[in-house]
């Protein structure tokens, strides 16, 4: 069998237990042949299973490292974890830790993603076209920082604790956020086109939330500042507009600004356009 740059993996049957797909790295697999990919060992409960037992593998005629996964992968975790380069796409749903700690490359998931997607993501671009679970762009227990760089785009709705402890990078949420959006946020930018749930920005220390859609209720531990922020707004709104058309009307408007959470460091800001 000849080597290929990209592979298509079609799920044959649901596994008995959750499967760790972190060994599937587009860049690392590029240049191997279909047989080698099929023999890749995946962790499954307390044992390993060969990839070929769960997936049909075909070579793709891609010119750059690429993986295309097809099927309902909700029992498959850690897709694209620590990914460093290449393209990875999934047609169905995925499990937890999608793109966790990824450093570069592109991931697109057509369906919904489980919890902790993009957690501790450091670079690259991750797009989820469906909904996303809790703690997306967040941090693992004990880690001081959640998402650390790159761009996350979610077209659906997000679960609770969206952007928990996020430190850097840009997140665009086109649907609605669950409760505790941006909890304990350290820095970075979250742009929201939809609504947010209860207690948005709880314990937020720094960072920016841009409300492009409906205006949120401002918590009692946030306070308004009325100074001229047109310079920062110009920089930020132009950038967001370039990232997604849902935000391309921001630049022409002037937002209201509140700061908080005064229960934490209080240097976070909400820029409210809606």
């Amino acid at each position: 069998m000849s080597a290929a740059q990209g592979f298509r993996l079609r799920l044959r049957a649901q596994p008995d237990f959750r499967v760790d797909l972190s060994p599937l790295q587009p860049a690392a697999l590029a240049g191997r042949d279909v047989g080698e990919v099929a023999r890749l060992e995946l962790r499954h409960a307390n044992a390993h299973v060969e990839l070929g037992e769960l997936f049909d593998v075909d070579a793709l005629s891609s010119e750059a490292p690429e993986l295309r996964l097809e099927g309902d992968l909700r029992r498959f975790d850690r897709i694209g974890q620590a990914m460093d380069g290449g393209c990875l796409s999934v047609t169905g749903e995925v499990g937890d830790y999608l793109g966790a700690a990824m450093r570069s490359g592109d991931i697109v998931v057509e369906g919904r993603a489980g919890h902790l997607a993009a957690c501790e993501m450091a670079g690259g671009r991750l797009e989820v076209r469906g909904d996303i679970g809790d703690f997306a762009a967040g941090a693992l227990p004990g880690s001081m920082d959640g998402m650390r760089g790159g761009t996350l785009v979610v077209r659906g709705n997000a679960g609770a604790r969206f952007g928990d402890r996020m430190r850097r990078g840009t997140v665009l949420l086109l649907g609605d956020a669950g409760d505790f959006c941006a909890s304990r946020m350290v820095a970075g930018t979250i742009a929201l086109a939809g609504r947010v749930g209860a207690h948005c920005g709880y314990g937020m220390r720094r960072g920016t939330l841009v409300f492009g859609g409906s205006a949120p209720d401002v918590p009692a531990t946030f306070a308004e500042t009325s100074h001229d922020i047109r310079v920062t707004w110009a920089l930020l709104s132009r950038s967001l507009g370039k990232l997604h058309p849902a935000f391309d009307s921001l630049a022409g408007r002037v937002p209201r600004r509140v700061v908080g959470d005064l229960a934490a460091d209080g240097k976070g800001e909400w820029l409210i356009v809606g």
Binding site: R168, A187, H227, D228, I229, V231, T232, L235, S239, E269
Partner: peptide, 24 residues
Amino acid sequence: GWQISKMIDGKRYWRVPVMDGEFV
């Protein structure tokens, strides 16, 4: 200590509170 850093499109900006608003 009141300054804020902001990364936009891969560039880092500092926002320093001053009397007319903020110096970027």
